[in-house]
C-alpha cells in the first residue's frame, strides 16, 4: 500500500501547501535539469533528510522499494543500449536489431547516474504526496473545481480504507477455506475475481453512505461558502525566503554552469561544478533539518 498524506504535526506538515509545492518544484526541477553527479547527490541526500525531518522514514519504504527497483532496471538496461563511451569493459556478441553489445564504463556510470535520478524523483513525488494535504492543494489549484477537488479528496481519504478492506476480505476468505494462493496465475485470477467484485460493490455502498451523510448536511446546493482559506504564517515566509528561493536560484545557477558529461570519457568531478551552487543546493536541506529540530523543541511558538 502506498502511503498518503497524514498530518504528523512536523514542521514540514505545518507549511502552507503552496510553499511545499514551490519547494518540491525546485527539487524536482533540479533533478531533471542537472547532470553533475555531485548536484544530484546533494539533492538525493537532501530528500532523505527531509524524509527524516518529516518523520516519514517508515512510511517511505514503499517509495524506496519502487524507486530502487526502477533504479536497478535503469542501471542494468542502460549499458545494453548505450553504445557511447571510450572505455570498453566487455566485448559482447553482435545481435540482430540491437547490434554489437559492447559494454562501456561510461554507459555503466551513466546508468548509475540515471538510476539515482529516477530513485530521487520517485522519492520526491512520494514525499510530496505525503506532505501535501489534498484538500488544500486542490482548493489552491482552483476554487472553481471545488466539487472535483472534494471527489478527489474523498478518494484519497478512502484509498487506505479500501486497501485495508481488500486485505481483510482476503483474510476472511482464506480463513473460510477459499483457495486464493494455490494453482497457476489463471486459477488465482479466477479465485480473486469474486473478491474484486465484492470490493467494488463495497466501495459503491460506502460511497453511497458518504453521499447520504453529505446530503443530510445540506451538500448539493448551488451556493456554498468557503469558511477558511489557509493563511500564510511566519514559517511560510521564512521558508520561501531562506529555503525555496535560494534553492531555485542555486538550481538555475547550477544548470547554467553545469557542463558535466560522461561521454566520450568521464569529465573530472571539478568540471562544471560551482561550489556556490553546490552550497546553495545543500544548505536549504541542512536548514530543513535544523529548523525541524528547533520546531520539535521550542521553535514552534516562534515559527507560527
Amino acid at each position: 500500500m502506498l502511503p498518503i498524506y497524514r498530518n504528523k504535526g512536523t514542521l514540514l506538515h505545518s507549511l502552507h501547501a503552496s510553499v511545499v509545492l514551490l519547494f518540491m518544484a525546485a527539487v524536482v526541477g533540479g533533478l531533471l535539469l542537472l547532470d553533475h553527479p555531485l548536484y544530484l547527490l546533494f539533492l538525493g541526500v537532501g530528500l532523505l533528510t527531509m524524509m527524516h525531518s518529516a518523520d516519514l522514514v517508515g512510511e517511505s519504504r514503499p517509495y524506496v522499494r519502487i524507486g530502487a527497483t526502477l533504479a536497478v532496471l535503469v542501471f542494468l538496461l542502460n549499458p545494453l543500449f548505450n553504445r557511447n563511451g571510450s572505455h570498453v569493459l566487455l566485448f559482447g556478441p553482435r545481435l540482430p536489431v540491437l547490434g554489437k553489445l559492447d559494454i562501456t564504463l561510461e554507459a555503466v556510470l551513466y546508468g548509475a547516474l540515471s538510476g539515482g535520478r529516477v530513485f530521487s524523483l520517485v522519492l520526491a513525488f512520494g514525499l510530496a504526496g505525503m506532505l501535501l494535504d489534498p484538500d488544500e492543494v486542490l482548493r489552491l489549484l482552483s476554487p472553481s473545481i471545488w466539487r472535483t477537488s472534494l471527489a478527489l479528496g474523498l478518494s484519497v481519504r478512502m484509498y487506505p480504507t479500501l486497501v485495508t478492506e481488500a486485505q481483510r476480505m482476503k483474510e476472511a476468505q482464506m480463513a473460510r477455506g477459499l483457495p486464493l494462493e494455490t494453482g497457476g496465475k489463471w486459477e488465482r485470477f479466477k479465485a480473486y475475481l469474486p473478491l474484486w467484485t465484492s470490493l467494488f460493490r463495497n466501495s459503491l455502498e460506502r460511497a453511497s453512505t458518504v453521499a447520504e451523510s453529505m446530503a443530510a448536511r445540506g451538500f448539493g446546493g448551488k451556493k456554498r461558502t468557503v469558511w477558511k482559506k489557509s493563511n500564510y504564517r511566519r514559517i511560510d515566509v521564512l521558508w520561501v525566503t531562506l529555503l525555496a528561493i535560494p534553492l531555485m536560484t542555486a538550481v538555475v545557477v547550477a544548470a547554467c554552469s553545469d557542463g558535466y558529461s560522461l561521454f566520450p570519457s568521464p569529465d573530472p568531478l571539478g568540471k562544471g561544478f560551482s561550489p556556490w551552487a553546490g552550497a546553495g543546493i545543500s544548505l536549504p536541506f541542512l536548514l530543513v533539518s535544523g529548523l525541524s529540530a528547533w520546531w520539535r523543541g521550542r521553535g514552534r511558538k516562534y515559527l507560527l
Partner: peptide
C-alpha cells in the same frame, strides 16, 4: 473543517 462542512454547504457567512 469537518464541523464547518455542513455550514459551508448551507452557505452561512464565514
Amino acid at each position: 473543517r469537518e464541523i464547518a462542512f455542513g455550514l459551508e454547504s448551507m452557505a452561512l457567512p464565514p
